[in-house]
Nucleic acid binder design. Structure first.
Length: 271
DNA sequence: AGTGCGGCCTGTCCGC
DNA sequence: TGCGGACAGGCCGCAC
């Protein structure tokens, strides 16, 4: 399930194959994603030059001479660079064929992802306009997070997973970061001291950048742009380890649904 | 305004 | 072996 590190890994992987290329054709096999792919997308993209491949949160922004293709991988999506004649497989919903013959292919079994076209400033698009700061940017610091948390009663885990607060912290990394920071995921966001938010900021940054270095976590669905799986799941400290001993203190790891999401914590290490 | 939940999807896994 | 059901989860949109 692509979280920010997987999205960033994908972006870096496809970028050199796309920038400077021209779209020769677009093939839509299944338009019904989270939002339908417009029927005229192939026509719109025809002969456009790709200039940039950027990321905002978990959205990949493919910038062209006329507008931007906003791609979200949802739960199970992937973007891969393929040879011109690669036969499509199940759930290969969209191809962009480039002038040099290579193919950018969007694959997404669960179809929680999206491919949206926008002209004008992509950051002003409704999907992106309300997003919070990037977790790896300097704007994301303890003063900001602590300030935003004032008066908020929701669980801190739900709070850091809110993309208006900070982008790119999905369920796996929220669990991992809170474990590292020693914070109980159920604790109310507004009842955590500045100093502890300092620790949480560092944990979120570390967990995400380590995963980016390693090429992104793989659970079941993620395949990186080369088709080979990542391997960060081996280093997970808390996620999915219900009933297993805490790697730090040996206490049995607990689990509970929090805001419809599986939540894991060590009752001894996290308060 | 803040909070919490339903719904969208399919593949995988488990129990019968 | 087949089958139903639970589960996984990002994020929008809605109801309270």
């Amino acid at each position: 399930m692509p979280e920010l590190p997987e999205v960033e890994t994908t972006r870096r992987g496809i970028l050199p194959h796309l920038v400077g290329q021209t779209v020769q054709a677009a093939i839509v096999r299944q338009p019904r994603l989270r939002w339908p792919i417009p029927a005229d997308l192939p026509e719109t993209l025809n002969r456009l030059a790709i200039r940039t491949v950027e990321r905002r949160g978990k959205y990949i922004l493919i910038g062209t001479s006329r507008g931007t293709l906003i791609v979200h991988l949802g739960m199970s999506g992937s973007l891969r660079i393929l040879a011109p004649d690669s036969p499509p497989r199940k759930h290969d919903h969209l191809d962009l064929i480039l002038a040099n013959g290579t193919c950018l292919r969007f694959h997404d079994p669960r179809r929680f992802g999206c491919v949206v076209w926008t002209e004008g400033d992509p950051l002003s698009h409704p999907l992106l306009a309300e997003l919070g700061p990037e977790p790896l940017s300097e704007h994301f610091d303890a003063l900001y997070l602590h300030g935003k948390a004032q008066g908020r009663s929701m669980a801190v885990k739900s709070f850091i997973m809110d993309s208006r607060i900070v982008v790119g912290v999905g369920n796996i990394y929220a669990n991992e970061a809170l474990f590292r920071a020693g914070i109980d995921p159920r604790r109310q966001a507004g009842r955590i001291a500045l100093l502890r938010y300092e620790k949480l900021i560092v944990s979120i940054r570390d967990v995400l950048s380590e995963a980016i270095e390693q090429g992104g976590t793989t659970l079941r669905d993620f395949v990186n742009e080369n088709g080979s799986p990542g391997y960060f799941q081996q280093t997970l400290q808390i996620y999915g380890r219900t009933g297993a001993p805490c790697r730090r203190c040996g206490e049995m790891i607990r689990t509970q649904r929090l805001g419809q999401r599986s939540t894991y914590w060590c009752p001894n290490c996290q308060h």
